[in-house]
Design a protein around this nucleic acid. Structure first.
Lengths: 215, 215, 215, 215
DNA sequence: GATGAATGAGTCTTCATTCAT
DNA sequence: AATGAATGAAGACTCATTCAT
């Protein structure tokens, strides 16, 4: 009933947009199934449901914005690290990638369903913009990898990041299985099937990079 | 209304069960979003909706059965290949894995949402059985890898399969993106972001295995 | 598709709520088994199915609202009668209760399955509110009975109403039996089992009140 | 799979029938919502689902049989008591009715939904038979009441039993309310609405009989 | 721009009952 | 008579999205 102040200036609009994104992020973080509803987001952001749609055309566009924020933060962190001087080895690159990723669980989870959900119900413009920005950052970080790891060919940096992303989401899904799966894996003879995320992610990523070097 | 035949013998029941699974598989194959409904499956299988629930307690159990069939077929194929004599190199193993996988698109897609499927309508018994059978096959094939690739440590075969599965589903998701994404990637400057599944899967898997060898 | 009017003011909302209740009442009145569906109610009220759930959380909450309306009307009528001056005898009280009740068949029927309704989709808040309002009216009318009938002890008015309610619903159920039962009772030698509602309700209620006086 | 012995002789059939009724009774007793399924009954009785329908045309017919058993037992008990010699007062009759009823909770509960459910989905023959037997017992016991209580007119005994049945089921429904209702009634100011079954049943029944005497 | 009431598509699942064996 | 597989009707409810105010 209380009419919210209208965001007339571009600046105010941006602010409101971020308030919504922030609310969505907080909620998604707390939702193991990522099944937050728009109504919840609106309430937490202190706006009406309809307002959310004023800033995000679809539920998926909002989620995409959250993911983009997470990705930006990660790219920022990784780039900053990779820009550090010193001797860069496969080991050091691996550690950098692993450690920065570990701080962004929500990014991993959202990335895991980027394909199945997010990309589906967002309109072309939103998706194109997302992909464009993702491309820019991926290419930039990929270039850094190419610079630091001489054995990575031109264009190979982006590919390496793709591989990393696959290992990341795939191993996470195995490691953070549903409760019922966890119970099944608790049986002694199921031990070999248990996945400890950090260990396996590091191990596989390290091997992958070493393998690229060995080609 | 149509089929009044009753499957009394265990054998007939198995047959009916497979008829349903087969219908589901066919439908899933044709459904890009994997959003087949039980009603559709029942109709295609020529049975009543209720009959489906006689054989599969939930929608998810049915999906799991389809995936299991695909996995079985793949494990059969891989095992048969790996049991061939001759000299086994990383390259040959990679080709074997890649070529067998390429024939099973549905397996890849279902694998890609195994995580979310399992989370949804968890029936402990069904999940446990699935995981158990998956474990048996994974361990057996993992052992073969360990035997063929001396540098793979004990237990490393299973891990290698996990890594492969991650690359498989992750790269597939990138390669087979939603139409809107495809359109975005069609832009000339987005070229680096395009993923050609077979090439990248082979490349990354090969690197990964080589990397494991180099440790 | 039809009604796009939005009830923004509290007043309009109340109106819409009542339109739905009214539709439900009309339908229930015509449904011997009280098995009206939400879809039917929505259609008759000229709103979408979802709209009904905007005003009533569950099917049962709606039914409760209808019953509450009936009860309110009855309490209003009885209270008005009992507030009339003049000499009050057991006979007059009985007639008042009987005559007011006879006009509210739907109330009787809904009251007859209040027990099972409440057991089903219990929403504590809705139930608590219903019970609270029912209590207020029951206690108020009970107090009137205590005032008019000197032999009714303090608190006895409410009990008397409980007894009346039991006779009311019980005898109604016997009198308005299912068709098959009616047919069975049509046999000459089943005559003693036939129940004529008004006569028996009046008779039993009158006896009950007299009995309370005789204590 | 194991074929049950076939009940060829009438005697065996009766036995099987009773085994099913017994299973149903046991299950209903333990089911607060009386929502036992045929499958459960069949399993407990050690027969196939289809067999239940061999003996009872519908679910309701079975429930009716259970109720009839309960009623028979009650009528037996009451008749035996009423056939005792000695001085019979309203008080003694009341105590007899109350005490015999208190032992048969399932009877009360089933009686409470005889109207709404049981009578609806049973075929004419079953209902007619039930009503006929019920009539016989009711009339017989009614006659006893008429003999013992001189003020009860001819035919009044049956009516008295009807009134009693109404008080019985009505007060039980109020006393054994759904959990949510109990919680609502737990509030201090809701105290007047609480119903203690035995006390109120006895009180109202006693008053009713006294009232009949006073006419 | 903001609000929030209205919309309505979408679907699983239960279980009494039937009937082929 | 007994079995148990097959049937299919039946219906509440959620929630993203729209749009009148």
């Amino acid at each position: 009933m209380v009419l919210k102040q209208r965001a007339r200036r571009e600046e105010d609009k941006q602010q409101r947009r971020e308030a919504i994104t922030k609310a969505a992020r907080a909620l998604l973080e707390r939702s193991p199934r990522l099944d937050t509803t728009i109504a919840e987001v609106a309430e937490r952001a202190g706006v009406a449901k309809g307002t959310v749609f004023l800033y995000f055309a679809t539920r998926e566009a909002l989620e995409l914005a959250v993911l983009e924020g997470e990705l930006e933060a990660w790219f920022d962190a990784v780039d900053a690290e990779l820009d550090q001087s010193g001797k860069w080895t496969v080991q050091r690159v691996t550690s950098t990638l692993v450690s920065t990723v570990l701080l962004r669980k929500l990014m991993i989870r959202l990335l895991g369903r980027l394909h199945s959900t997010l990309e589906h119900n967002a309109d072309d413009a939103v998706i194109a913009a997302f992909e464009k920005r993702l491309a820019a950052r991926t290419i930039a970080t990929g270039a850094r990898l190419e610079a630091l790891l001489p054995f990575v060919a031109k264009g190979g940096g982006v590919k390496a990041l793709f591989y990393m992303r696959s290992l990341l989401t795939g191993l996470w899904a195995m490691a953070e299985a549903a409760p019922a799966v966890q119970r099944a894996l608790a049986e002694p003879d199921m031990a070999p099937m248990r996945v400890e995320f950090e260990r396996e992610f590091e191990h596989s990523l390290s091997a992958l990079l070493k393998g690229l070097a060995a080609e």
